[in-house]
Design a binder for these strands. Sequence first.
DNA 1: AGGCTCATGTAACCGGTTACATGATTAT
DNA 2: ATAATCATGTAACCGGTTACATGAGCCT
Lengths: 184, 184
Amino acid sequence: MSLSFGILGFLNYKPMSGYDLVKAFESSLEFFWHAQNSHIYLELKKLEQKGYICGKTVIQSERPNKKIFSITETGKKEFLSWLAKENGEDLTHFKSAFLMKIFFSGNTPPAQSAKLLRQFLNDCEVYLHKMEAIPESIENYGSDKEFYQTIYWQLTADFGQRYIKTCIEWANHCIEILDTFKEA
Amino acid sequence: MSLSFGILGFLNYKPMSGYDLVKAFESSLEFFWHAQNSHIYLELKKLEQKGYICGKTVIQSERPNKKIFSITETGKKEFLSWLAKENGEDLTHFKSAFLMKIFFSGNTPPAQSAKLLRQFLNDCEVYLHKMEAIPESIENYGSDKEFYQTIYWQLTADFGQRYIKTCIEWANHCIEILDTFKEA
DNA sequence: AGGCTCATGTAACCGGTTACATGATTAT
DNA sequence: ATAATCATGTAACCGGTTACATGAGCCT
């Protein structure tokens, strides 16, 4: 469902090929919406059938041919009405197998769960490091014309950073508590 | 995949019926793992086929009959090995249609996106309020024997609170920025 | 020769959701 | 009467993942 709006969102900026879209997802939405290339190609087909986008084959001599998709008027309408809609019930209950594991960790000794948490902490720190480079790359990307767009990119990047920092603080808190248990 | 481990986790505490499990998910894991009752019953069937759990029908005179499931030795082994495994790649990239919407909100006026964010903020505040009652209810729940279990319940509840607080701070930050745009 | 980027897909599967179906007992 | 709680499921669907398949051109 939502992948299709992601595609419409990118095509609303400018026409793109499936390959371009794969790259676009990887380099920007990746953090909160990972998309498989296979899925993107399938979704493009569906969106074309619905008349939300339309594709034109571009013949290239030095590279494989490609199909450039543009958003149609109906597609634009659909996308903008999605943007305006308040769905509620998102973010507030997300799924996490990791938290479920911690929830049930009363069945294991503190050293084992502390180990999982230290691993998690480490993953978070690596991730945070990567994310701290994003805001600058956004700044360098947009022209003046697109400045208003970039605010929103910054805001979502900011969410990512705050979120990971919260994870780090929480993991440290957990490890601290579990360490007192080992001593006792 | 993970629902099955949730079920094994609960059955590892004590034998339960499908109905009991539905309630257990609703009242504790709900925040980070919502489970449909239909899905639980399907999963119970699969787990029984695999030999991880085994069910016995209990005839009741004053209520509909029920089927009580217990975890088997193989089921226990499976569950404990899952608990010990580090999977990585969880939590760090989660999916959020809401964040995707904010990401693309450069196509809408600041007043519209601010409205979405205010709605989100409000949902978070309501949710936080509900969550603040959880730690106490956990304290009152466990006997001394189960005290060690409850630490982990507290830790996951704590994650939920920190997370929602972060969402609230972020949403306020966003609204502030967007408000300066309205004035300009 | 081997690996990378560009470029596009198909097929099988699966975890999970939505909607529907049923029916007994208990409390108001 | 009627709503709530107890109790268990089926069927259709769908969004998304995994694995696989192909092939041209470029760089080292």
